[in-house]
Simulated scan of single mutants.
Amino acid sequence: MTQYPMTAQGAEMLRVELNELKSVRRPQIIASIAEAREHGDLKENAEYHAAREQQSFCEGRIQDIEAKLSNAQIIDVTKMENTGKIIFGTTVTILNCDTDEEITYRIVGDDEADIKNKLISVNSPIARGLIGKMVDDVANIQTPAGVIEFEIIDVQYI
């Protein structure tokens, strides 16, 4: 059984989505199917087929979330002592040594990753290059543009 690393916030987001799917979406879809059945012939009933497709997607997503939550290894870095070492769940501020650009990322699980919100997957090249490093270390990270040198400025367990 594979364990999936997940932050406490990521697990909570999945629980909220699961509750929404089960208590709101599923009943709406069932009502749509019942309404479409009342229109008669199901072979050429586009509303019925669309509702069944939505139902299939919804049930698949419910199964996916339940599987992820049952195999989740929830890691809450706020309950750990900050040793300055970059681990899963930490928030890291790095400096691009070439451009002097400072950027802050939080290392999260695959399902939580959202680059627009500065959440990067633990499996991304940047996160893999940073894991295990400490404040003031330099990390050479292979990117599509080539190797980039980053200096680790700050590591927070928040």
Rank of each mutant, 00 (worst) to 15 (best):
A8D: 10
Q9G: 04
G10T: 07
E12I: 06
E12K: 15
L14P: 09
L14H: 08
V16T: 15
E17M: 07
L18K: 07
L18S: 13
E20H: 15
E20A: 09
L21Y: 08
K22L: 14
S23H: 08
V24H: 11
R25K: 14
P27V: 07
Q28D: 12
A34V: 06
E35Y: 04
E38L: 15
D41Y: 13
E44G: 11
E47P: 01
H49C: 00
R52W: 02
Q54M: 11
Q55R: 09
S56P: 02
S56C: 05
F57G: 07
F57S: 10
E59G: 05
R61M: 07
I62Q: 08
I62T: 03
Q63I: 03
D64Q: 12
I65Q: 03
I65K: 00
E66I: 04
A67S: 12
S70N: 14
N71F: 04
I74T: 04
I74Q: 00
I75V: 14
V77I: 14
T78Y: 02
T78S: 13
T78R: 15
M80G: 05
T83C: 08
T83W: 06
G84E: 07
K85A: 10
I86K: 03
I86E: 04
I87W: 08
F88L: 10
T90A: 15
T91H: 02
V92A: 06
I94Q: 01
I94M: 05
E101P: 03
E102Y: 08
